[in-house]
């Protein structure tokens, strides 16, 4: 049976990169799929050129090519990331850490109730959250670039870590908060309690998604994809 040479496999990697698949784990699966399809065509007619066979296989992915496939994989990985965050969060919502959470919320509420310029404090917190998110994204992007420079490979799970499974976009939605009700919620006790709970929970989720989950997801992926890492 006629099979693809090492150079042709390398050409397939270049082909996937040209079609906007930058993640090595996704590229590898696509390269094998395309190679299988090409070899199948050669079984029927060995005179078909490599390029013609490749184009015929690529057409099977539809008008959007590989982009839909990559988007869906990214979505699935982000969902997995979020599920890990919620799983970790649940452990903090049990005793005794739950008591610590209540104390923190209460302390924050007391602080918000006693100080003047509440709106400014909250605005400063939102700016801080945004700054931390931007800083996280910058550092994660730098890590992806560094790894690519060293190994020539980019991994999709690194992108999920960069986006915190999509949580990072929630931070950017916070820009809208001042437009909602101009902090009128802070005028009531219940409103202050609600805002305090949201802020503390947000910081918890952010801490879990930036400090705990990346370690878990990287370990899981290294274990699962160890053959690709070698």
């Amino acid at each position: 049976m006629k099979t693809l040479s090492k150079n042709q496999i390398e050409e397939l990697y270049v082909f996937t990169r040209k079609h906007y698949v930058e993640w090595y784990d996704v590229q590898t699966e696509l390269v094998d799929h395309l190679a299988n399809g090409i070899e199948r065509q050669w079984e029927i007619n060995s005179n078909i050129s490599f390029k013609d066979a490749l184009n015929a296989e690529f057409k099977k992915f539809g008008i959007f090519g590989f982009s839909e496939l990559v988007e869906n994989k990214q979505r699935a990985l982000n969902k997995y990331y979020r599920s890990l965050v919620f799983k970790e969060l649940k452990t903090y919502l049990r005793l005794p850490s739950f008591l610590f959470l209540i104390i923190t919320v209460y302390a924050f509420k007391t602080l918000l109730s006693t100080i003047g310029y509440k709106a400014y404090v909250l605005a400063a917190i939102i700016v801080l959250m945004l700054a931390v998110s931007v800083c996280h994204m910058y550092r994660a992007k730098k890590a992806i670039r560094r790894r690519y420079a060293n190994t020539g490979k980019k991994w999709l799970f690194d992108a999920a870590v960069m986006e915190l499974g999509g949580f990072v976009h929630v931070s950017f939605l916070l820009i809208q908060v001042p437009n909602f009700d101009r902090f009128s919620m802070l005028q009531t006790g219940v409103g202050t309690l609600l805002v305090s709970t949201v802020v503390i929970l947000y910081f918890m989720v952010f801490y879990i998604s930036t400090r705990i989950v990346p370690k878990i997801i990287k370990e899981n992926m290294k274990k699962r994809y160890q053959e690709l890492y070698l």
Binding site: T3, L4, K6, I9, D32, A35, Y225, E227
Partner: peptide, 8 residues
């Protein structure tokens, strides 16, 4: 993963 015909 497995190595098959020059690819993974």
């Amino acid at each position: 993963f497995a190595k098959v015909n020059n690819r993974t």
